[in-house]
Nucleic acid binder design. Structure first.
Lengths: 346, 346
DNA sequence: ACCGTTCCTGTTAGCGTTATCGCGAAAGGG
DNA sequence: CCCTTTCGCGATAACGCTAACAGGAACGGT
């Protein structure tokens, strides 16, 4: 034993283990374990002695050993697409914050590609690190296939996913957001509303299109063919030019704020004033939106709330609730700024 | 044994362990372990039999057991401030990508506050999950104190940190970026350059101020008092108004792109044209910058490169290189767009 | 006085993996 | 042909912790 030759415990080389603490406190290893896990089951005086020894030796439990015997690791996995994007980054951030409060650590696996294989691989990487559960942030249609073929014994929930998948889902109600944005524009007096949407296989993009189309149809307005961008300002700019060239366009609902930025620029370049000639609404409410020119009317998504919901759904799942909630929707808010107004007819 | 009553191995309830594979392949557990860790030390034929059994049973090693005996977990920790910010998010993303290629998983600990205690707590959380090493992303002066009081036996590197700390550092050369931005403005013919900087205790903010001031002093120009914002568009807007009110201001170097956005808006609101009346340079090159109005001249930081460097520094550290590199700087690039030009004197 | 009960602590036996040593067989060297 | 060396594999003993049981002491009710 190294402890013997240490002659006390001062210049310890090897980190202290349970046995060292037990020896110093004059109790069994089991009692030390109990002090750490179920303190109320140990006499106050003994507990104090053990805790003193813990502090003296600077003892910290070995998570691997604990995990080996309990079967739980206290680690959650998050499989996510590009965490550089505002939405996923915010969601991840909030998942971590929430998880921490409940004593969980979060491990991540970012995806470069997005398909069944990459998702399986991401889940697998985390699983082989023995995570207790996994949250998947992959808002793509193509991800659904991955979500249907998960290891059956691993608790999983998804953020932003379609309707017909076998895991619980937390997400912002995209339809509701699109409905609010579109109604807002109609209520200002616009004949109809054009749409610049996100890429075809994004769940969010589809939801927003549905909501937008639904309102127009319900109100009996003409439904222009939606344009599809790739979320980037560049694509918004390109598509914005097409819309700017059409004088009948007076209101545009854009799928996210970054593309809306591109649209704003395209309008300006084409000499169409916002909001006098054309009204523009975005989606997301990124921190920059309020400082666009003009400040952007947009739909705010509470990603923090989504993260919280996802975590709690997962917690239910890990507790074994097979019949828990299957879907938690977060209501988005319309933030009206200066990029929308009553159309001014010549 | 559950295996016995399983009657084969088809409807397994309990996940397979090493012993199950060994039994099926007709070898000892140790041989299976060798096939997985040092395949070349096993006869090809035996190896094939074992691998077949591994596939048949869908065996995956238990990381906790492995870790318990080897002492290594294959997990890296990243302690970071708000990973919603573009810089930290990008860095984190790239650390994860790089780490994955070397077989490491990444666990995260975001900080809400930033001081010695919060950093120690973050490092501690990860450490108690037995990470093999930690990367700290905390670009604050106040973090330095935390960096000086780390557990001595844990490999740690930092991203964005001051000069006098005892761990290796990877970062963008902020001074160099500021120097390029300032020289660019002077070369266009501006008398001097104003500065809107980040919060006082941010390392990056200090570096940018130093670079900016250094150029002005070297060129014998007057050095205006720098203004300090908080990185947000809002603060850039407020400070931009002050600058817009001063007709002698013709060039502004702003500490990040978001504040630059606010400055652009303030200038416009005050009737000062960019770049005809005032030139503006930002820092970061966030994806939106090219679509600001006007498109923003800015300094691009390659966060991906920073992430890569940080990981490799940590790898050296974990290999035991006490005397490895201590500082890796990444050169930033000036991206000239349309927010800068020759001052037009009346 | 006796018999549950409750409280507190210890003993034993793993959890699933790899380090280490050992042994027989095959291979190389004189 | 004998003596080393290498190769391929197995037996055993940890790694550090907790589940499960066991047992003694103290307590209260009959």
């Amino acid at each position: 034993m190294a402890t013997a030759s240490d002659g006390g415990a001062r210049p310890r080389s090897r980190p202290a283990v349970l046995g060292d603490v037990a020896a110093l406190a004059g109790v069994s290893a089991m009692t030390v374990s109990r002090v750490l896990n179920t303190p109320h089951r140990v006499r106050a005086e003994t507990r104090a002695r053990v805790l003193a020894a813990v502090r003296e030796l600077d003892y910290w439990p070995n998570s691997a050993a604990r995990q080996l015997v309990t079967g739980r690791s206290g680690v959650l996995g998050v499989v996510s697409i590009d965490t550089t994007l505002y939405g996923p980054a915010s969601t991840l951030y909030c998942i971590e914050q929430t998880a921490r409060l409940s004593g969980y650590t979060v491990s991540i696996a970012s995806l470069s590609a997005l398909n069944r294989r990459s998702i399986e691989e991401g889940v697998h990487r985390l699983r082989s690190q023995s995570v207790d559960g996994v949250i998947i942030v992959a808002p793509h249609e193509s991800a659904a296939d991955g979500l249907r073929h998960l290891p059956p014994d691993l608790p999983v929930v998804a953020v932003d996913a379609g309707e017909d998948i076998p895991v619980p889902v937390a997400m912002v109600d995209q339809r509701a957001g699109a409905i609010r944005a579109t109604r807002h524009l109609l209520s200002l007096g616009h004949e109809t509303v054009w749409h610049v949407g996100g890429p075809a296989d994004w769940i969010d993009a589809s939801g927003r299109i549905e909501g937008w189309r639904g309102v127009l149809e319900a109100e009996g307005r003409s439904v222009p063919e939606p344009l599809r961008g790739d979320w980037s300002p560049r694509s918004g700019h390109q598509l914005g030019r097409r819309l700017a060239a059409d004088p009948s366009v007076t209101a545009v609902f854009v799928g996210n704020d970054q593309m809306a930025l591109g649209v704003l620029r395209a309008m300006r370049e084409s000499g169409r004033r916002v909001p006098e000639d054309v009204s523009v609404v975005g989606f997301d409410d990124i921190p920059e939106s309020a400082y666009f020119w003009p400040p952007l009317t947009t739909v705010r998504q509470d990603f923090r709330e989504v993260g919280r919901h996802a975590f709690h759904l997962l917690l239910d799942r890990m507790a074994g609730d097979e019949e828990g909630e299957r879907r938690r929707l977060v209501e988005p808010d319309l933030v009206v700024r200066e990029s929308t107004g009553t159309p001014q007819r010549p």
